[in-house]
Amino acid sequence: MSTPYDIDAVLPDGTIEALPPGTNVLITGPAMVGKREVAFKLLASGHETGEGVLCVSTSASASSMLDEFERYVPTLDRDRVAIVDCSGSDSQRAIREIATERVSSPGDLTGISIGTAKLLQRFSEQDVSDVRHGLVSISTLIQYLDLNTVFKFLHIYTSRIADTDGLGVFTLESVSHDPQTVNTITSEFDCVIELREGEDGREIRVRGLPGASRTWRAFD
């Protein structure tokens, strides 16, 4: 793919409207600020033009993930959504309805990588070549594994997304980790979207991309 991934209308005017293939984006902010919502919207905003979504869910089950997606994309084509479910949930519903690979624990990174590889291969058999990859969330991985292992995995996984010309969208809860940890994780990403609660409501700031303004702006 050589055309950028359109993220029109997800972020406020004047931030960014499209991301080049191979870009990896990190969304950070405190709990309950809406990181998942932004992640899902970024992942789903190419769905109507035939792109695929491949999301690793570290704690939510595949069926609740599917419900969240359908909230943002009412016309979701279930053939183009695939989930690696590490929640340990035994719900069969989503597994019947969309492509799902189950991994016993978020700490099983080899299992996660095999799951994503299988699902990506399935997309390629369906001729879906533009794929947005989600990982929600890095914070769960840090609970299960040493930071250095999570860091190494992110380096490999973001390289995988870059080498397959995908778009990567990851989330990190920034308050529960110390600043050094957040900086270390952040360094692996091309672009960081920060969210916070300001005095007059939610605010957003985008760092890392050329042309992205570093000022906070309102984001409803």
Partner: peptide
Amino acid sequence: MSTDTEFVGAV
């Protein structure tokens, strides 16, 4: 890293 065996092998 676009090769499956290389990717999974690295992880």
